[in-house]
């Protein structure tokens, strides 16, 4: 299965209902939109239904309104489906920040609230890197949660990556320093850092992350070169608050959206990209080693609205 197929297979279940409703809308001649002669025919009812569809996908009221406004103001005369797709794609197109220059190994920090899929993502990222010919070191900086280190060790074995751990309760920043030193000594390309889940409102835990950043920066130039926020696709509007808090505290450079193989659509990530300018980088579509896919806005939107499965 190609990545796109995998993503689509994962998204298929999530979109059945969405597509069904869309088809009904599309079949209705009154739903053609645009500022041309057709604009007047986009009825309020249609837009209400559309808003509901977007809200049900967790895109949220304000991002939905933004999208609907753009749909309403769309110039030209296209069918509703392609206009919505087009505008959704535009909302999702945030430039991926240029890779931070700096020393080797590159450091990727993986952060997020509890239970979103950080550890699994680190294992799968190691696999993706290995497939592209890079040699990752996995660093177990979750020294808090019970058996978090053991869990990650299993993933490191699966991904055949180096593994650096510390004793439970150790200072996470110290483990990160050790892992980077080990990476340097062994000439590895990337250090992937798994961190403990934390609720973004706990200021002391957020400053712990900041400390990790500072220590990493001292160990290698420009580190962390990337900071990925892992979001669970089932998350609702709180996802935006999470993104904002992690962005402020540790400068998130990208989002990983996990659990897209369920029925949740992860729409809040659209709002995150649209409002905070943080791009989605990867999506998780299952619990296996290969179930992490680089994100593509075009494919995501296509897969969401593709009618024939």
């Amino acid at each position: 299965m190609s990545f796109l197929e995998r993503l689509r297979a994962g998204l298929r279940r999530t979109t059945d209902q969405l597509v069904g409703r869309f088809d009904r809308l599309d079949a209705d001649p009154a739903t053609r939109v645009g500022v041309g002669p057709a604009a007047a025919t986009a009825s309020l009812d249609t837009l209400d239904t559309l808003e509901e569809i977007l809200i049900e996908a967790d895109i949220g009221v304000s991002a939905s309104r933004r999208l609907l406004d753009r749909v309403r103001d769309h110039t030209g005369d296209a069918d509703l489906r392609s206009v919505v797709k087009h505008e959704l794609r535009r909302l999702l197109e945030a430039p991926i920040p240029a890779p931070v220059r700096g020393g080797c190994p590159r450091v990727v920090l993986v952060v997020g609230v509890n239970g979103t899929g950080k550890t699994t993502t680190v294992g799968r990222l190691a696999r993706l890197l290995a497939l592209s010919g890079q040699q990752p070191v996995i660093c177990a900086a979750d020294t808090f949660r019970a058996a978090a280190v053991e869990q990650l060790q299993v993933w490191a074995r699966r991904a055949e990556a180096d593994f650096v751990r510390a004793r439970p309760g150790a200072d996470p920043a110290a483990v990160v320093f050790d892992a980077i030193s080990a990476g340097k000594a062994r000439g590895r390309d990337v250090v992937l850092v798994d961190t403990a889940g934390r609720v973004h409102t706990r200021t002391n835990l957020m400053s712990e992350l900041d400390k990790i950043r500072r220590v990493a920066g001292r160990a290698v130039d420009g580190a962390p070169h990337e900071t990925l926020l892992v979001l669970d696709a089932t998350v609702g509007q709180n996802g935006l608050a999470q993104a904002q808090a992690f962005l402020e505290a540790v400068g998130v450079t990208g989002v990983v959206l996990t659990k897209l193989d369920g029925t949740a659509k992860g729409g809040i990530a659209v709002a995150i990209t649209a409002e905070l300018g943080v791009p989605i980088r990867y999506v998780g579509v299952g619990e296996q080693l290969d179930d992490l896919v680089p994100f593509s806005a075009a494919e995501y939107v296509e897969a969401l609205f593709e009618p024939a499965w």
């Binding site: 996908a57 967790d58 609230v113 696709a233 089932t234 998350v235 609702g236 999470q242 369920g262 949740a264």
Partner: peptide
């Protein structure tokens, strides 16, 4: 159930 869950909560 996770208190942070969104619209999907009723389905699951």
């Amino acid at each position: 159930a996770d208190a942070m869950t969104g619209q999907d909560a009723i389905k699951s």
